[in-house]
Design a protein around this nucleic acid. Structure first.
Lengths: 205, 205
DNA sequence: GACGCCGTACCAACCGGTCGGTAATGCTTT
DNA sequence: AAAGCATTACCGACCGGTTGGTACGGCGTC
């Protein structure tokens, strides 16, 4: 934490390069030399900062967690007074982000987890922590919304928070498989509709 | 079509071995020698049946399509007279399948698409075809259910059919990332609840 | 002058793919 | 049906290039 302001450290440059490359080509297919080239350093620097490639994978997942949690913690949707409005605001933000190049809006840890869940437990755990922690940031508002608007519905706040992530991750897979970004955005619309139905919000048609 | 009944051909053995290995370790991390060893043949046989590794990837996705479409086409949920019952029957089946080892119930083409969407367009397209074709098998029933029970709701049958796949794929990612299979099953419960709400089925609490 | 930081040079293992050769399986012709 | 021939199916050694990782040396700074 408390990163030096402007001159990005070599470690940070390597981490940022790793994020971009892994998001585009996946963990196994990216080489450390590729990352070094993108960061503008050599392998000597790489292996000074990371014990091995797996170590970088864990650090990349942690770096991703830090970056994204900063982004969503300071996002605009928190201004809403009502918990449900904050939830829907979050969903709307996620929907807006689905545009442009696939590698620019898809999720690093979702991509990595699929690849390494069996071969690299340390990376898998880092990915799991990242997703779970992000979902947990929605839990309190989910809890409040359930209590206020769907008290008889037997869904837990935790499960519902995770569901938002499941739909979003699934949307990314569809976007990658079909090559159609609009298809992914549709999926988030369904997620919004589900939440609106569950919390009995009039949707207008 | 019309495959020889019992003695599995070498090509089929290679394809089955590829499915198992790629589902466990991903496309990039599996070597052709690994696949050969699992199939009990040598590299000579492999490169006799496939031009290169990418060609195998495409063939594996197609083989996956054929296998899974057979499975779901002959599944029990088709016995229901009502389209919505068939849809919910499908979802219930998908939920039942989520158990045991991750590599045994997760989706090959979802896994591959994430990895190769940029580096191997031919494999990506095969994965896209597989998912889209599977979703399309649900479209007619979705269409009928929408017409009968939610005519004023502006969702398309195609989009809703794809949503089932998005949730299921997302559930697989969560299962891999958290290591918890029950979490994945929960996500399919949410999918079922969404469909029930959308089509105004009383759920009992 | 010791230590953090990073570049250069290098290595051993591995991986996709090739190639020459062989066994088996038809297909033809007599 | 036997012989002759062509094609397919498969083996396994080999090759060129790549990859993760190491050894070491230089350079700046406190």
């Amino acid at each position: 934490m408390a990163a030096p302001p402007h001159p990005r450290s070599t470690r940070e440059k390597l981490l940022d390069a790793a994020l971009a490359t892994i998001r585009a080509r996946g963990y196994a297919a990216t080489t450390v030399e590729e990352i070094c080239a993108a960061a503008g350093v050599t392998k000597g620097a790489f292996f000074h900062h990371f014990r091995n490639k797996e170590d970088l994978g864990v650090a990349a997942a942690d770096h991703w967690s830090a970056t994204t949690s900063d982004y969503f913690r300071t996002a605009d949707f928190h201004r809403h007074a009502d918990p449900l409005d904050r939830i829907l605001g979050y969903v709307d933000l996620r929907r807006q982000l689905v545009r442009g190049a696939l590698a620019d809006f898809t999720c690093l840890v979702g991509t990595m987890a699929q690849e390494v869940y069996q071969s690299h437990p340390a990376i898998r755990d880092a990915c799991g922590r990242s997703i779970s922690a992000h979902a947990a940031t929605l839990e309190a508002d989910m809890e409040a919304a359930i209590a206020a608007r769907a008290p008889d519905c037997n869904v837990t706040a935790k499960s519902l928070a995770l569901h938002t992530q499941a739909v979003i991750q699934g949307a990314f897979i569809l976007a990658k498989a079909t090559g159609d970004v609009a298809t992914a955005a549709d999926q988030i619309d369904h997620l919004r509709r589900y939440l609106a139905l569950l919390f009995s919000v009039p949707t207008g048609a």
